[in-house]
Design a protein around this nucleic acid. Structure first.
Length: 259
DNA sequence: CGATGCCCCTGAGAGC
DNA sequence: TGCTCTCAGGGGCATC
């Protein structure tokens, strides 16, 4: 929605993961969105006058874009509605309210957490493999936890970490610091592949995720291990996929091909 | 400072 | 049908 002017903003619920600023609507109303930036799992909107806001979808959030001639009827958990001067409506819906919406300054947002500490973008053209290796070497946590840590590398979630580790043949329990340079290089390649494929498929619609036009993503049909406990992966004839819990989250892996 | 556990919240699905 | 239990794409905060 770059170039569009925010004509009206309605915040139906302010008690998201972080409380929506009291002056959120007042600051942004009438402003034109100059640029949209994605950094890790965050979307940053920057306005002409130097104000801006951050949006994070949490676990269950989604953004819907309605055409000007669409009849919009609010549904449960529609927490924020931006009506643009063009008549387009941008609706943020988030049942679990783990999402975030808050004001930032175009000048300083990069210097503030979480952005100041965030790792590199895995899909960046100038990605520094050496920096990734050093981050891994400096972590004594399991590789699974390291990859979920947004300070190590940006934007990976539970699904894509499981899938990338499977493709790399690395057990999620292996210690981050024990991952060799060659393995790290290979892992990074698989991380990039998984992300590119998932994006091309419109993401993974397990329950809440939908694209901005309301359509589903279909990368969930291409999972090798995620959510497949007790099944066999594409490389094994026998049942090989196990589930364990690491730092409170499920890890799925192939017991035969990952070590 | 780094690692870990817990918690925030709603809804879907399984099992009884 | 309805209750209870478990689990879910994330991240921040307290605690050690």
């Amino acid at each position: 929605m770059c170039g569009y002017i925010m004509h009206d903003i309605i915040i139906a619920r302010r008690d998201l993961r972080r409380v929506v600023d009291d002056d959120f609507e007042a600051v942004l109303k009438g402003q034109r969105i100059k640029s949209l930036i994605r950094r890790g799992k965050y979307i940053i909107a920057i306005c002409d006058n130097g104000c801006g806001f951050v949006l994070h979808l949490g676990m269950s959030g989604r953004i819907a874009i309605h055409a000007p001639d669409d009849v919009y009827t609010p549904v449960k958990h529609d927490h924020a509605v931006f009506t643009m001067e063009s008549g387009h409506r941008i609706v943020f819906n988030d049942p679990r309210r783990f999402g975030m919406l808050y004001l930032i300054s175009a000048e300083t947002w990069r210097e503030e957490v979480p952005f100041s500490k965030m790792g590199e973008e895995p899909l960046a053209d100038d990605l520094d493999v050496g920096a990734f290796c050093r981050m891994l070497r400096g972590k004594k946590a399991p590789i699974k936890a390291a990859l979920l840590d947004q300070r190590v590398i940006a934007g990976l979630g539970n699904i894509y970490v499981c899938e990338a580790l499977y493709r790399s043949g690395i057990l999620p329990t292996r210690l981050s610091k024990d991952i060799g340079v060659e393995e790290a290089d290979d892992l990074l390649g698989h991380i990039r592949d998984v992300l590119r494929e998932a994006i091309a498929s419109g993401g993974s619609s397990l329950r809440d995720h939908k694209q901005t036009d309301g359509s589903m993503g279909y990368f969930q049909h291409h999972f090798d291990v995620y959510g497949k406990e007790g099944e066999s992966c594409g490389r094994c004839d026998s049942i090989c996929i196990k589930r364990i819990v690491q730092s409170g989250r499920s890890s799925f892996f192939c017991a035969n091909t990952q070590s």
